[in-house]
Each structure stands twice: as structure tokens, then as C-alpha cells.
Design a protein around this nucleic acid. Structure first.
Length: 671
DNA sequence: CTTAGGG
DNA sequence: CCCTAAG
């Protein structure tokens, strides 16, 4: 009876009767489906591709080298062809990926030539080079192909290399547009084109020295945090959603009503994982069991809401205990800096190498990347070219039984690396010691032009705050490359391990950066192994965890299955006036207390606004409306809207009161 | 999952 | 924004 009564009156006195649950559910499901299929390609897919290649092919089996080599050689040929055809420098922008086998001789030579000759390079350095440039074309082809090079001619833009034990190099070129920031490709011009490269022909190989480090953190933050912050949120624009940018997370986010926890959505299929799987099969011989004991970079997610939540929370709290700067989870504030103290990668050592080649100078500022002493340009293109020698994979832990086989160890590491790469990466740009967060600035505006000091420019791979699981979150694609994101935010995970005293990475940009840089530099001169060791010391690289250490780790389940669940506080996304307007309008119509409906009605497309968010916003709006304008902060909300807020709030409060007056009586009567 | 509220 | 208790 009571129920019936309620329906008659409208739930809580609302004018519009609530939609029956069944209907709602169906609706939601539909929405989910709809959203799920959105898909797009992100520039960062490239990264994924690279990672996949590296991880999948390079890391897997050494034995495959032979075949790979053959393949690569053929590629080389192609490269040459391309080289010719593109010689004129009219390539179209796009991604280009090629794999080359570094030639041992070349390597040696280059190494020897290096200022800090690094003799003990890791076996065959596999490097991935990413270059982006606006007008350039295939610098790589040339670079690699002729070791000697003509790199000068082409110039190298930004490149990232990943070194692995396989002898391969994967090069990637990105068009500037795809890049992190500015797209005005023409923004930069260069008067002259330093022939920085000529002296060092096989620069590529040089890459083997980890001049550039990337910091990745295995613990990817929850995807939600994608740093997209816009003031002008378009209610209809799905793209507003962090996820929507490229690929909507497969997660069944309930459409509109996506639960607040959604961010933990599991994503399983990833490029990385795919590769990973392949590797497993082809790669090691058995020992599967052992592997099973090892920690899995990936873990299965539980669908249970509670479970997810608990998982998510767990790591987080733990981290706090350890003071691992882990993600700075301060909310909005975090956006202040994209740099994480530790994770940033930078390149170093190379500086000397290049500087030597080019002109003198340049001591490595500790930044990660640079070209010769200066940026290379093509006068005609007015482009700045960057070269990143290599990225260093930041610290991560692996726990494996002592009796495990080497094969399983490899696999475990592979898994971890895959998880890192697969988790999504973001590129950070550091210029003159500062993190450049405004992606909309042109290089020119930023000061990165032909005459900047190369040393001052650095790139970093940052963990993409994705949820995580090992696999690339669906979001990672969209998140990774904040194409249009002005504020990268980023919450980087900081190294936890040793990073016990890292403190927050949020601010202190400069500081952390510097620190980071410094440490990198330390290792710079050393050869791979040496570098590795040093890095380890710094807790920034792969660190084999000994049994003893394992215990400590046990306490802090950083990498454990739960690690991926690391939860990150969602980024703060202030409501725009337009959103407030929509909210007010919806509430006026529906009243308070029906947030799910408000969400559906006015924010159905804003996946990042949950009904709870709307409810909270209303709460704050009411508060805001009651305080003096002077006390208000943030983007000012038109008084008109605030007035409507108060009016609506008063009205609906009254309605609610009436309802309650009535119902009790009804109930009593019934009873 | 939704609401409602406190934090 | 997060977290939770309640329903």
C-alpha cells in the first residue's frame, strides 16, 4: 500500500514519476553499448605499437634473431627506397615505423666514439626511436640505413628509444600534429641547420647508451585521471569524457550513471598483452609453473563492485604509508605539475656525445633529449628536430621465487614491462628545467626554437594515469596523448620503492625534476649495465628484488595484483557555467533527489559527471548561492543561475517536506 | 545501483 | 571529489 501511495504522488513528490527500474536498466544498458563502441585512434597508439613490437618481438626469444634480421634487412631496403623518394623532403605527415637491426660494427664504432664510451652495452640494443616532426620525413631511414649519414639532412625530431636485449631498433616517426603539444607546426623556424649529426653517424646505436630515460611506473594510475581539463565543457560532447577521447573504455560504464567506481574498469585486451601472450607461447620453454608463482604484472579484475573498490583502495593506502610519492593524489592540485619526481625520464649522457659532435658544449643539462648542441632545423620547414636516444624503463619490482627459472624470470619481467608500456604512456616535455604543461603552446611560444639550448629540452615518458591493469586501459589511448589537453596533469607514480622519501611529486616541479635529472646524469656516462646498476641504486630501473627485499615488498604490495588497482582520485573538473546551467535547468524540472534522472537528462553525454557529482555540485551551488560573492571562488557563476538555484532548492525542499508530511500519515493509516 | 550526507 | 550507510 505504501508503495502504491508513493507512486501516486510521485516519488518524493516529484512531478515526474520515476522510471521503473527495469526501464532504467534497459536504458542504461543501451547506453553502455552505445558508448562502448566509440573508438578512435590516438597518436599514442603508436606508442602501443612500438611497445608491442619491442616487447613482443624483441624481448621474446633470442633465437628469433635470425629471422628478424632477415626481415629487417628487407626493411632496410625499403627504407632506402623511401629515402630516395622522400629525399626531397615532401613526405606526408604520418606515422612510420620500421625496424632495423643495428649492425654490430656500427654500434661498436659509435660507442667508441662516444665521449663516455660505453663498452658494455647490453646485448643488442634494441631501440625504438620515435621522432616527430612536422615536415620531416624519414630521417630515420637515412640515419639507420647509412650509418653514416645523412641524418643531418633530415634531422631527427624527437625520438625515443627503448633498449632491450634484442638487436633491433624500431623507429617511429610521428607527425607533429600528433604530438604533445603544439601543433602549429610552423611555429618554429630555424635559420640554419646544424650538422650536428654528421660527425656521429651511427647515432642510432648510440642510443644504446641510455641517454634518455623514461620513467614509467608500473603502477599506472587509474585511468580516470586523464588530465583533460576544459573550462568549456560541452555537455553534448562525449569527448569531454576522459575516456571518450579516443576509445571508450570497454567497460560497461553504465552509461550515464556510470558509477563512480567505474574508473576501475578492467580492460583486458591490450596490445601489449597480446604480444605478451605470443611471447609466452613461442618464447620460453615451459617452466610455466614457475611463472605462475611469479607475480603477475597483470591481474584479473574482479567485477564485483566492492571488490574492485577494495582493491583500488588497498594499494593506495599502502602507498601512503610508505610515503611513496606515488601518485599525487591530491586532486586538482596535482595538475600543477606533470612531472613526477621520479618517473620522468630524461636523457643524459648523450648530451656530451652530441655536443661533442655538434659544437661544443652542451653539458647535458640532465634533460633527456636533445639533438646536437642545438635543435636542428630545416630552414625551409621551420621545424625543430629532436632526437631522443633512448628511454629508460623506470623502476619496477619483480618478485620471483628463488627456485624459479631464468625463463620465468624473464617472463615475469616481460610481463611487468608489458604492463608498464601497455598501461599507457604519456610524453612529458621538460624545457629549461620546467615541465611544459600547456599543450597548446607552440614551440615558439614555449621557447623551443632553433636557438634554445638543447640541453634544456627533455622528454619524458610518464605513466599514464590509467587504471590500469596491465593492459592498456581502454583509456590509455585517449589519455596517453593529451592531444587537446592543456593541462597534462598527470599523476605520476613515483617510485615507490626506494622512493620512500620522495614526498609528493606534485609541486616541486623544479626540484623533483632536478633531482631526477641529476640522478640520471649520474648514470649517464656509464654503459648500459653500469647505468642499469646505478639506476637500480636510484631505484628507478628494473630492480631485481632479492628474497630479502621481497619480504619488504610483501608488505607493500606495490606490484602485486593489486597494484594495478591503484586508484587515483579523479581529476578535478570544475563545472563550467554551461554545465551549471544545464544542471540548474534539470533540477528545476526534476527536483533534487533524482540525480540519476538529472544525469540522464542533462549530462547523459558527460561520462565524467556521475549523478553523485551532480548531486555534489548542486550542494555546492546552493552553498555558493548563499555566500557572498566575495567568498566565492573559481569560475564565477552568473548570479542569475545562483538565484535559480536557491529558488529551485527552496521549492523542492518544500515539496520534499510536504511529501514527508503526507507519507508518514499515510503509513500510519495503513498500519 | 541510487540516495543522501558527511568528509 | 571521495566514502558510506541505507534502501
Amino acid at each position: 500500500m505504501v508503495l502504491q501511495k508513493r507512486l501516486d504522488y510521485g516519488f518524493n513528490g516529484y512531478q515526474v514519476p520515476p522510471i521503473p527500474r527495469a526501464t532504467r536498466s534497459a536504458r542504461r544498458r543501451g547506453t553502455i553499448r552505445r558508448k562502448a563502441d566509440g573508438d578512435g585512434t590516438c597518436p599514442f597508439d603508436l606508442l602501443a605499437t612500438v611497445a608491442g613490437k619491442l616487447l613482443g618481438e624483441g624481448a621474446s626469444s633470442p633465437d628469433s634473431t635470425g629471422s628478424v634480421r632477415g626481415k629487417e634487412q628487407s626493411i632496410l631496403k625499403d627504407e632506402k627506397i623511401k629515402e630516395k623518394s622522400y629525399a626531397e623532403g615532401c613526405y606526408e605527415r604520418g606515422f612510420f615505423i620500421s625496424e632495423l637491426v643495428s649492425q654490430a660494427p656500427v654500434v661498436n664504432r659509435s660507442l667508441s666514439e662516444l665521449p663516455h664510451a660505453q663498452n658494455d652495452t647490453i646485448s643488442g640494443p634494441a631501440s625504438v626511436t620515435m621522432s616527430s616532426d612536422c615536415s620531416e620525413k624519414f630521417p630515420f631511414a637515412k640515419q639507420f640505413v647509412n650509418g653514416e649519414s645523412r641524418e643531418e639532412e633530415h634531422g631527427v625530431f624527437s625520438s625515443c628509444t627503448l633498449d632491450t636485449e634484442s638487436d633491433k631498433q624500431i623507429k617511429i616517426e610521428l607527425s607533429n600534429n600528433a604530438k604533445v603539444s603544439t601543433s602549429k607546426g610552423a611555429a618554429i623556424s630555424s635559420p640554419e641547420f646544424p650538422d650536428v649529426w654528421d660527425k656521429k653517424p651511427s647515432t642510432l646505436l648510440v642510443t644504446s647508451d641510455d641517454s634518455v630515460r623514461l620513467s614509467l611506473s608500473p603502477y599506472t594510475a587509474p585511468c580516470r585521471s586523464f588530465p583533460v581539463i576544459r573550462n568549456d565543457v560541452k555537455l553534448d560532447n562525449r569527448d569531454d569524457d576522459e575516456n571518450s577521447g579516443c576509445t571508450q573504455p570497454s567497460t560497461p560504464n553504465k552509461a550515464s550513471g556510470s558509477a563512480p567506481r567505474v574508473r576501475d574498469r578492467p580492460i583486458k585486451k591490450l596490445l601489449a598483452s597480446k604480444y605478451w601472450e605470443e611471447n609466452l607461447k613461442s618464447d620460453n620453454e615451459g617452466h610455466a609453473n614457475t611463472g605462475g608463482k611469479t607475480m603477475h604484472a597483470y591481474h584479473n579484475r574482479n567485477s564485483a563492485y566492492k571488490h574492485q573498490r577494495s582493491q583500488r583502495d588497498f594499494p593506495f593506502k599502502k602507498r601512503k604509508l610508505f610515503k611513496c610519492g606515488s601518485f599525487s593524489n591530491s586532486d586538482g592540485e596535482m595538475s600543477t605539475d606533470g612531472i613526477c619526481s621520479s618517473p620522468t625520464s630524461d636523457l643524459h649522457g648523450n648530451a656530451s656525445y652530441y655536443s661533442k659532435a655538434s659544437s661544443g658544449g652542451g653539458a647535458a643539462a640532465g634533460t633527456s633529449v636533445f639533438n646536437g648542441g642545438r635543435a636542428s632545423f630545416k630552414p625551409s620547414d621551420s621545424c625543430v628536430k629532436f632526437r631522443i636516444k633512448s628511454f629508460r624503463v623506470p623502476e619496477f619490482f619483480v618478485e620471483i621465487p628463488e627456485n624459479a627459472t631464468v625463463g620465468s624470470l624473464k617472463r615475469t619481467v616481460m610481463e611487468a614491462v608489458t604492463a608498464i608500456l601497455g598501461g599507457g604512456l604519456r610524453i612529458g616535455v621538460v624545457f629549461q628545467g620546467k615541465k611544459v604543461r600547456d599543450d597548446n603552446k607552440t614551440l615558439l611560444q614555449t621557447g623551443i626554437s632553433h636557438d634554445y639550448e638543447l640541453d634544456a629540452l627533455g622528454f619524458s615518458l610518464e605513466p599514464n594515469p590509467i587504471q590500469a591493469s596491465p593492459p592498456l586501459g581502454p583509456d590509455w589511448r585517449s589519455c596517453v596523448l593529451p592531444c587537446d589537453t592543456p593541462q597534462p596533469l598527470t599523476r605520476c607514480l613515483s617510485p615507490a620503492i626506494t622512493g620512500i622519501h620522495q614526498g609528493r611529486s606534485d609541486d616541486h616541479t623544479g626540484t623533483s625534476l632536478n633531482n631526477f635529472v641529476e640522478s640520471d646524469r649520474d648514470s649517464a656516462p656509464s654503459p648500459h649495465y653500469a647505468a642499469l646498476e646505478k639506476i637500480s641504486a636510484n631505484s628507478r630501473a628494473l630492480v631485481p628484488v632479492t628474497a630479502v627485499n621481497a619480504e619488504a615488498l610483501a608488505v607493500v604490495p606495490l606490484l602485486k595484483p593489486k597494484r594495478s588497482e591503484a586508484t587515483q582520485r579523479r581529476i578535478r573538473r570544475p563545472f563550467s557555467v554551461a554545465e551549471v546551467e544545464a544542471l540548474v535547468q534539470a533540477v528545476e524540472k526534476l527536483g533534487t533527489g533524482r540525480w540519476r534522472d538529472v544525469k540522464l537528462r542533462a549530462f547523459d553525454n558527460a561520462n565524467h559527471r556521475t549523478y553523485v557529482d551532480l548531486k555534489d555540485k548542486w550542494k555546492t551551488l546552493v552553498h555558493t548561492a548563499r555566500i557572498s560573492p566575495q567568498q566565492r571562488r573559481g569560475e564565477p557563476v552568473p548570479q542569475e543561475l545562483l538565484d535559480r538555484v536557491l529558488t529551485a532548492h527552496a521549492y523542492w525542499s518544500q515539496q520534499q517536506a510536504k511529501q514527508q508530511m503526507k507519507q508518514p500519515s499515510e503509513t500510519y493509516l495503513l498500519l
